[in-house]
Amino acid sequence: MQELIERAKALLADGTVSRVLGWRATDTPFGPEPAFFESGEELNEFVYNCFCGANLSKYLIESSALEGKTLAFLKPCDTYSFNQLCKEHRIDRGKTYIIGVGCKGKITVERLHELGIKGILDVEDAGDTLTVKTLYGEKSCPYSDAMLERCHACKGKEHRVADEVIGESADTTDTDRFAKVTELEQMTSKERYAFFQAELSKCIRCNACRNVCPVCNCRKCVFDGNAFDSVQKANATEFEEKMFHIIRAFHVAGRCTDCGECSRVCPQGIPLHLLNRKLIKDMDAFYGEYQAGEDTSTVSPLTAYTEHDIEPEAGKGGNE
């Protein structure tokens, strides 16, 4: 971490960049917040640890409009979102300076809660295990048990774009990322309906999934404003829960890098990434494998076509 701070300070000092986008330490060890730093002094609050899961790419949209370059620290998976945003001309690559940071999977305190660890005071990262100090004694668990969902389907240790890389990364994949999608496909239509009904009925329409999503960056979202009488601020009926999530997922189809931020931030723990992964899985099967954000030139499957594409009936959500 000290290396990152020193490097950022140097780049600020020599005028290469005007500000630094990273994470700031706060009063709890597990709550670093995304932050902009504009001076060496401010950088003393910089932190980079196992809790820095937030994908910083989206903040670069607003900093693209500012004077001077912004230095951003991106994890390997964040670089996919960054590429995607460059491709969509939402980020000006020339106004960024990317330092790829090492990542061995990020964890969240919510996972620890789910493991039944309560009253957490401090978390110590000892390699493969976590030692958790709590009000109710010391607990420990394997590192990977506390990892974010997305890290179990890691996109690899390589940064897709970076001006320089500091630190080592590891590929933390330990599951097939489509396993749950396949499992759902094998259910009956009725079972799937029940599954999503239960999950989506928890939705409180806080828009966190939309606002955190790097590629959900329309200036004006169809769900905001007064234009549609059915698209509102709250889910008045079960229909509107489904409506919101189908549209949200479909609107990022072909652009979603599977960064998993939507599921990370959902205050109700809805596995929103499943909708996105279903779309990715289908498009891979229909039009060949495609990974959004891998580069800035490949055309996304929904903005391309061939004369002999499969017919829409081929799109099967799963068993009947």
Binding site: P34, F36, I204, C206, A208
Partner: peptide, 13 residues
């Protein structure tokens, strides 16, 4: 305010 995503999670919770 800088990290704020302008979502409503805090207000609804």
């Amino acid at each position: 305010y800088r990290p704020c995503l302008a979502c409503g999670a805090c207000t609804f919770a």
